[in-house]
Design a protein around this nucleic acid. Structure first.
Lengths: 202, 202
DNA sequence: CTTGCAAAGTAAGCACCGCTAACTTAAGTA
DNA sequence: TACTTAAGTTAGCGGTGCTTACTTTGCAAG
């Protein structure tokens, strides 16, 4: 919608790779991860349908690039959220969760792409590591609250449980499973309460 | 793999609709929800590529039928799990969760289809209702434990929180996000603990 | 028993897609 | 300035979703 074929002057595009990623992110958001086509992305970048294959091996590779970029944004958001609250506080953890949910809500397509084991994810350990990097943010915050080390089993367990809740909540929201019957009035309150009840459990 | 074009004698197939759904479930499981093609499903049923459109309006409709059938199986499994434990017990709730996770693990493709807002889900309130029907199973179990009515806000809130955990856990498993770093040793113990800590929270 | 109709199959074909191959343009370096 | 090579191009193959027009068949009314 925004940059529909700005007819370039030079034969070489110059910034195709980045522009393709932008276009794909847009398409994934509007048509879903499987509704996107590399041909359409090429069209948006004002380039022939074969051009993308000079920059990406195949369709999954292009999607993986978008997912990777999404992971980076997610991690940044989580870290920023944590930093905006006192270290070692419950609120810091809840804020990470809020950032996670906000990320999902503001870009369901990319969120589904990031977590979702789409085609050909296997051969990308890079992406997997970034995922663990995100989890590490939660892990650190939980360790700080409990006053234990990162690899303490209790820290791992509590952090994982929290992750499942936030992850599940995010999916239920973007998949509209709560529509009508279950509108969340005070999401921050929900996150705080869940965090407290899971962290404080024995 | 199982029924590859059993060359039928009669012109009319006789059982195409059901056989298509079977084929699609298989394909979704092996190639993912977006990797499936109605042409391939038709091939498996030993029928021309146009035949499916006599039974389903379009591709999404076919997928929706598979999702709907999956919902039914999920609900049955959840109800059976609940029935196999004393009413009003924590274990009954955990068992529902276990059934949910097992369903996801035994059929990730269909699970992703059932929860996942694939193309054209909107125009199917039928499916939506079935989803709430599944949630109702959890709701009843939670109400039984807390000794309150179904529409009590606390029941709703606790049930939803439990749902987010189990839902998130399921997704993290089938998306392999726990691989290596986070193998769950005792899943039943995990579910029991989570249930207890969420149900017992103030 | 025949007839006629609607349901359920077919083949042919359009537009689009992913991807490849062979070619062309242009930018940078020896 | 000549060569190499990255980054574009067009053309085209096979597969896909879906439609159209046609054919076969089961069934129900007369």
């Amino acid at each position: 919608m925004s940059d529909q074929t700005p007819p370039r002057s030079s034969y070489h595009h110059g910034d195709l790779r980045a522009q393709l990623i932008d276009a794909v992110r847009d398409l994934v958001e509007t048509h879903g991860p499987d509704g996107f086509s590399v041909a359409e992305a090429a069209r948006r970048a004002g380039v022939s349908s074969a051009a993308p294959y000079k920059h990406f091996r195949d369709r999954p590779a292009l999607l993986r690039a978008v997912a990777s970029e999404g992971m980076d944004r997610l991690r940044s958001a989580m870290e920023a959220a944590r930093a905006s609250h006192p270290p070692g506080s419950i609120a810091a953890i809840a804020a990470i969760g809020q950032a996670y949910v906000d990320f999902a809500r503001s870009g369901p397509g990319v969120f589904r792409l990031v977590f979702g084991l789409t085609e050909g994810h296997e051969e990308d350990p890079h992406l997997e590591e970034k995922g663990f990097g995100c989890f590490a943010v939660v892990l650190q915050a939980v360790a700080a609250v409990l006053g234990k080390s990162l690899d303490d089993p209790m820290v791992q367990s509590r952090a994982y449980t929290l992750w499942t809740c936030v992850h599940g909540h995010s999916f239920l929201i973007i998949d509209r499973k709560t529509k009508g019957k279950f509108e969340m009035a005070d999401e921050w309150g929900f996150l705080m309460q869940v965090t407290a009840s899971i962290i404080g459990a024995e």
